[in-house]
Write a protein that binds this DNA or RNA. Structure first.
Lengths: 108, 108
DNA sequence: GAAGAATATACCGATGCGGGAATATTGTTG
DNA sequence: CAACAATATTCCCGCATCGGTATATTCTTC
């Protein structure tokens, strides 16, 4: 899992931006409006998201249209899935069994 | 989605700790060893993870055993799933259709 | 209760991040 | 090319965070 993705998302405005963009591409101005922040901060946060490859930009006339890229979030999903057994009951018996093995034959 | 979870994970040592704990509970000393960091930093990072409710602790004799809690990661999984359509092809036609509608009847 | 092991906490210094304000850049239109 | 709109960049400041080191706390054992 890439720390860059997590730290890009670990900021309230940027997280909200990503959630806004979930419903489709938006302009810098639109994003700033919706979040109630000033344009320069919007640009700065979008720059961070862009450098983390979470969004991409395409110029259109005077404006820049930001859009979500799938890869980083998809990577997150894959990473998260490696923890599935934490919240899935059906492995309980297997867990107990493996822990039992562990005790009998410790790795170190 | 909770920013606290993301910012707790957005630090390399803490991310590694969580990955270590995926395979079972560990002691502070064990964690510090595996990551090659000093004990005080390990304790500090574990405190952050604990405050984000990503781990819990149980004392056992002289030591403290840290363990993963499912909820925050599970919440992340749920959040991530709201972006599924980003990387699932089967909505391509629907996407194109919606974008077409957008052009004909712009929101603003 | 003294000594030692495991862990937590406090303090310090360096660095980075976020917001504010001003300004630069780029594109459009008359 | 002048004026304007949309966006990016720069500079400054206050604050949080991280690592290092020292010290405190807690538990165990003799």
């Amino acid at each position: 899992m890439d720390v860059a993705t997590l730290s890009a998302l670990a900021e309230p405005n940027r997280l909200q931006m990503v959630e806004l963009l979930r419903d489709g591409p938006l302009t810098v101005g639109e994003i700033a409006d919706q979040l109630g922040i000033r344009q320069p901060q919007a640009s700065k946060h979008l720059k961070v998201l862009n450098e983390a490859r979470i969004v991409d930009v395409r110029p259109q006339a005077n404006q820049r249209i930001y859009n979500l890229r799938p890869e980083p979030l998809q990577d997150m999903q894959i990473w998260i899935q490696s923890f599935r057994r934490l919240w899935e009951d059906r492995f309980d018996r297997l867990d107990a069994y493996l822990e039992e093995l562990q005790k009998e034959n410790p790795t170190e």
